[in-house]
Nucleic acid binder design. Structure first.
Length: 194
DNA sequence: ATGTCGATTTGCT
DNA sequence: GCAAATCGACATA
């Protein structure tokens, strides 16, 4: 079942980030279908969270998409190299987003191996975008239409979930300590940062 | 107009 | 373990 704008419209971005574990991301690019189960996420909140690009509710050409409707992709270029995939959530005007950091590969494994030229397919935010052929061209694209090339589907439920601080946001001062990262315990596809 | 820096990955030492 | 890669967004002037 494809997840809807109503699902992503929840204003509680942290609860939503945790709930996304076990959901499936499906990507269609050209002839190829690739998919994976979400096993690691992080929550970002533009109003109060120094780690968010939109802090403190700062509207710029880049962050504008996060103030829009839920269920839309926010993809940005990191370190000039990596495309990082986020899902815009919460009601319009609230700049919340969820970074997908890792997937357990499900379909299209051979295509992913070719795109990655590696067996480390989706165990990190830059890697999974590469494996699913997600780029900044997908920024602002809807994830909740039946015609969307990237969709999120319900799939399974995990019960053993680890909560930790987020990765790579030391610059966010005290907000770097927020327990807003979630991952599936003992899942081999979780990113290598701990 | 220019300088700084990053929600990461990779390869080399 | 460390540093390069690589570029656009943003702040400052």
């Amino acid at each position: 079942m494809i997840l809807t704008a109503d699902y992503f419209g929840d204003d509680d971005v942290v609860t939503l980030a945790r709930d996304l574990l076990g959901k499936k991301i499906v990507s269609r690019s050209g002839n190829h279908l690739t998919s994976g189960i979400i096993v690691e996420t992080e929550a970002y909140s533009g109003a109060s969270d120094r780690a968010s690009h939109a802090f403190p509710n700062k509207i710029t050409p880049r962050t504008k998409v996060m103030f829009g409707p839920p269920g839309v992709a926010y993809v940005y270029l990191c370190y000039g190299i990596h495309h990082l995939f986020n899902i815009v959530v919460s009601q319009p005007g609230t700049a919340n987003a969820i970074l997908v950091r890792a997937l357990e590969p499900l379909e299209g494994l051979e295509v992913m191996r070719q795109r990655r030229n590696s067996h480390q397919l989706t165990n990190g935010p830059g890697k999974l975008s590469s494996a699913l052929a997600i780029t900044t061209a997908d920024n602002k694209t809807s994830l909740v239409d039946n015609a969307s090339t990237i969709q999120i589907h319900s799939h399974t439920t995990y019960h053993d979930i680890v909560v930790s601080k987020r990765v790579g946001v030391e610059y966010a001062k005290e907000d770097a300590l927020l327990p807003w990262r979630f991952y599936v315990r003992n899942n081999k596809w979780v990113s290598k940062f701990d």
